[in-house]
Design a binder for these strands. Structure first.
Lengths: 223, 223
DNA sequence: TATATGTGATACTACTTCGTGTCAAATATG
DNA sequence: CATATTTGACACGAAGTAGTATCACATATA
């Protein structure tokens, strides 16, 4: 019983194709479906009451494929968070692109998109602004990465308009973080009260916050 | 079998006292213990991973007494949130009391306490600034009540220093909400990164935000 | 056609937690 | 002492979920 004297017929070679698609494509497709389902469910029902089973049902897949792409539900939340944050930031960058020369127009366009996106995508907004907080273990990383990108975006936008003699870089960074916090907090309250307040009021109010910061920093056009 | 002919001996009268204390006192005492246990556990481990059993164990009581004071764990979270928020706001009011006449000193004292409290009470800060978000059903109410009090506090502080010709009341309110959001967001990031950044940097940076708002509003001493 | 692999439905185990119930010991009062 | 209430420890059922395993069927290749 020490040797195998008969090979199991023929060890067939397979390309990995199925339903006309390559294995990696099918896998990526499944991951996308799960991500979309996760965003929808977490954003609408909350992370705590979204089970893996429910996500799979929404995606039209089974648990096996969930664990193929994610190791647990927190993993899905983090992935969803990063995907939506990216989309959010991109949409803001796109909206501000035409106004890079005029700081006032830049701010207004940016804020209109920052609040407008939330109104148009309440589930996604809930996900990135509220539910993301649920993950203690990943919270630090999240702040470091995605919110950090938002802050970097703001600092990048500001620098070209900056005069000398304002606060140092450290203070500038804190101010940018604070500005991001102001927007997020206003959105959270807005979401929590079912978007009752007109978007225009939020934009205008936030514009004043940015205006004040512009004055404080000596930005041309605001002083 | 229609009449009861024999009274069950003597229907004793009891005052309700036990261990030398009145019933309502004992009950309030138990509630306090549970609240303290809840604040400690939710603040340190997070709401999601804090079970009612654990809270009872921490409080040295049993589940029966939990349900005597709270109807479920969310109820405890809401109560904890309100208690800590109250304490937080009171501590800020106390710290600013001596500087009501000088807007610059007022802002600095307020900010030092706003951030100082967080550093001194990380668990409580985590509770009110991070974990409180976990309760979808109560979120609206929270925003309406306790954060609203913070905003009101800010508007109240600002009004006496206000000149004419600034933005309207609606914008002022949005600005105040934004300012609260800036502080909260900075605290969240600070907590998430284990208080690495020096508190002085946060205070100074936030001071600039308030300074800018002061300029924008035409507050005397800031323009 | 025969075989290997991908797929989907579902079963299953292990675990946790909630909310309630039971029971004996401790304390107060007639 | 006898009785009623309060307390604490623990038991219990119901429900939900995570993660794994099983099995029949579909699809590709020699």
């Amino acid at each position: 019983m020490e040797t195998i004297d008969k090979k199991p017929a023929t060890p067939r070679q397979r390309s990995g194709k199925y339903a006309g698609k390559a294995a990696s494509d099918r896998q990526a497709e499944r991951r996308e479906k799960l991500l979309a389902a996760g965003i929808k469910l977490i954003g609408s029902q909350g992370f705590a009451s979204t089970s893996i089973d429910a996500v799979c049902a929404e995606a039209g897949l089974t648990k096996r494929y969930f664990y193929e792409s994610f190791s647990n539900s927190e993993d899905l939340l983090v992935a969803s968070y990063r995907a939506v944050t990216q989309e959010y930031l991109n949409s803001i960058m796109l909206a501000t692109q035409p106004h890079m020369g005029d700081s006032r127009k830049l701010v207004r366009a940016g804020l209109e998109q920052a609040f407008g996106y939330v109104a148009k995508n309440p589930d996604k907004a809930r996900l990135i602004m509220i539910e993301a907080m649920s993950v203690r273990s990943q919270l630090g990383r999240m702040y470091g990465k995605s919110y950090g990108e938002f802050v970097t975006l703001l600092v990048t936008f500001t620098k070209p308009f900056l005069a000398d003699g304002g606060p140092g870089d450290t203070a500038l960074e804190v101010m940018a973080k604070g500005a991001v916090g102001a927007i997020i907090h206003l959105c959270q309250g807005w979401i929590a009260t079912d978007f009752k307040q007109p978007v225009e009021e939020l934009v205008t109010g936030t514009e004043h916050i940015f205006g004040g910061m512009g004055r404080e920093l000596g930005v041309s056009g605001w002083v």
